[in-house]
Amino acid sequence: MRRRTSVVDRLVVLTAGCVLLAGAALALTWALGVTAARNVVHRLDRAAITAVPDQRWWPTVLAVTAVVALLAGSALLLINLRRGRTSTMPVFPGPPENTGADLSVDLGPLAHGLAAELSALDGVRTVRSTALDDRGLATLRVTVVADPSIDVADFTRNAEALARSMAAALPGAPVATQVLLHLDPA
């Protein structure tokens, strides 16, 4: 997930949470008989509120609200479902005067290579790999499903050694390696 997506998600949740908390606080204080809450509720014109659905403009406002909510919900869904695939990673920038001498690496094959190395370890059943952008940091993510009797400490040492070798293959490049271990049920 990109940083911008997580900020948008958090703002939407914060706004919805504040509105719900304000409504809950008003309902709770009214039910407890707090004078200020009772005064707010008594100031409302109940006849005008119950007459709103009979107004000529009500279907239009309702339709516009539904369309806006549908578009906003679809936009949030799309930005959250969009995969954060990485592009090539610049590893060795060329001299400033020569713009065509940059060296970049495609991270997808590196993730597949790391997965192949991990699949050769004892007890590993399946391996999936991907290169993605996780909040602005290029990440090689490998998900390993292993036998429940695997020596987790030994697997962790091997995975850390392989992660260090990936970091050595990309000197100075801001790339993280993430190995997720899932154990099959016993």
Rank of each mutant, 00 (worst) to 15 (best):
T5F: 09
S6D: 12
D9W: 10
L11K: 06
V13S: 03
V13Q: 11
L14V: 07
L14I: 08
A16S: 13
G17R: 05
C18A: 07
A22L: 07
A31V: 09
L32Q: 06
V34Q: 14
T35N: 10
N39W: 11
V40A: 12
V40T: 14
R43M: 05
L44G: 08
D45N: 12
R46H: 15
R46N: 04
V52F: 10
P53H: 01
D54E: 02
D54L: 14
R56Y: 13
W57S: 00
W57T: 00
W58E: 14
A63P: 09
V67T: 14
L70R: 09
L71A: 15
N80W: 06
R85L: 09
R85C: 04
P96D: 12
D102L: 08
D102K: 15
P109A: 08
H112M: 10
G113Q: 14
E117H: 07
S119I: 01
A120P: 00
A120C: 04
G123Y: 00
R128I: 02
R128N: 07
S129W: 03
G136E: 01
L137V: 15
L140G: 11
V142R: 01
T143I: 07
T143P: 00
V144A: 08
A146K: 00
I150Q: 06
D151Y: 03
V152W: 01
A153K: 04
D154G: 15
F155H: 05
N158E: 13
A161S: 11
A163W: 08
R164F: 14
A168P: 02
A168L: 09
A169G: 13
G172M: 02
Q178K: 05
L181E: 14
H182S: 15
D184I: 02
A186Y: 06
